[in-house]
Simulated scan of single mutants.
Amino acid sequence: MFELRRLRLLHELSLRGTLSAVAEALSYSPSTISQQLAQLEREAGVALLVPDGRRVRLTEHGAALAEHAADALDADERIRAGLERLQPGIAPVRVAVLQTAARTVVPAALTLLSQRAPELRVALSEVPPEEGLFELSARGFDLAIAEQYPGLTRAHRPDLERHVLGADPMRLAAPRGELAGAPLRSLAGHAWVMEPAGTAARDWAVQQCRAAGFEPDVRFELADLGAHVALIAAGHAVGMLPDLLWTGQPVPVALGALPGEPVREIFTASRRASGERPGIRLVREAIAEAFAAARP
């Protein structure tokens, strides 16, 4: 019989690509990962890994067993979901959240959960949506709150299901005063603040500027949207910010319309195998209610 823990290590290797990445994600040493995978090879009776430079790669048998490992892990989750229906709250719900949701939606959702399921433990980590969705697939989280931008949709993973929360308008943000209400094209010569390169938010914002006929001078790269607001309010930059950021807060910058009045879509995602776990369902529903109640 294959041990589920070793099957998970093989599945993680198929996702992450290196033994060191698996070790870091699961808090094991690389030598422990190697030993466990060597034992799995003995159990399988075939070679699962072969050297590839300084790394290893899956053999044909290894890739096939990694697919079966994913099925076994899904079955394990469905079994645990069945047990949780008999005793709700026995397992924590680990949630990956994007920054704007962490600042606005999540506190209200936790208040709802404290009333409806006080025994349920919810663990939160603020991570970029790109990382959150990957780690959700890799079983590092149980639920993720993510976004996608018009014309820049995220890939659909077959193991994940989405529930759309709603639309969040994106607006041009500039210092109050002479730039208030300025069209996008007129801001070509100004310093811009945007999220780090490689994020969907950055790629989308750059494309908006290019569509308006200029390449933005991205002088400030910051993941913290609160820092975006501070720089813009102080007159050092212009940017593009979502309405959700202003829920329950004063707006210290001038907001203007972007061409086409674009909105980003906010959604939750969970693994299909565990999406109906009572705890995950409760958290998902509370997040949906909190988002619906949020108003800039």
Rank of each mutant, 00 (worst) to 15 (best):
L172W: 06
A293G: 03
G89Q: 10
D243V: 08
D159K: 00
L172T: 08
I79A: 12
A290F: 04
G140A: 05
F134H: 12
L65D: 00
R16I: 01
D217W: 05
A81T: 15
A227G: 02
L48Q: 11
T59D: 04
V193C: 10
P216G: 02
G82E: 15
R6W: 05
A66W: 06
E147T: 13
V46G: 00
L65N: 02
P158M: 01
G198I: 11
L136W: 07
A66N: 07
G140Q: 02
S137P: 00
A66F: 09
P118A: 13
V229W: 00
Q39M: 14
E265S: 12
A223C: 00
Q99V: 00
R55E: 15
V251A: 13
E84S: 12
R154S: 13
E24G: 08
V93G: 06
A138I: 01
V105E: 02
P118S: 14
P150Q: 08
A23D: 07
R42K: 13
G45T: 09
A254W: 03
A173R: 07
H11R: 14
P30A: 01
D52K: 04
R264S: 13
L113E: 10
R103L: 15
T59L: 09
V50R: 15
M1G: 15
R80L: 15
A123P: 05
A294G: 06
A117D: 13
L160W: 03
A91T: 12
L112G: 03
G235Q: 05
A290L: 03
R78S: 03
H228K: 04
H163S: 13
V238S: 01
A200H: 08
E41A: 04
R219D: 03
E147S: 12
E285F: 00
A25S: 12
A47H: 15
I90E: 13
L7F: 08
S34F: 03
V50M: 09
R42W: 07
R219I: 06
E276P: 02
T199P: 03
L136F: 09
M194V: 04
Q99E: 14
L143M: 04
P51K: 13
G275V: 12
L165Q: 08
D76K: 07
L83T: 00
P129D: 12
R103Q: 14
D217G: 02
L244R: 07
A200K: 10
A288T: 06
E147Y: 02
E265L: 15
G275E: 06
R103H: 11
D217Y: 06
L7H: 05
A286R: 07
G151E: 12
L4F: 10
P92C: 05
L10S: 02
I266A: 11
L133A: 03
V56T: 11
L40V: 10
F2Q: 09
L179T: 01
V93I: 12
L83P: 01
P259W: 08
A292M: 08
P30L: 04
P107N: 06
G45R: 06
F267H: 14
Q115Y: 09
S270L: 01
M1N: 11
E147K: 00
Q208H: 04
S137R: 15
R272F: 09
G213Y: 11
P259L: 07
R162W: 14
D74M: 01
L48C: 06
D159M: 05
I33L: 10
R121W: 00
W192D: 02
G189D: 09
L241Y: 11
P259N: 02
A197R: 13
A69T: 05
R176N: 13
A200Y: 14
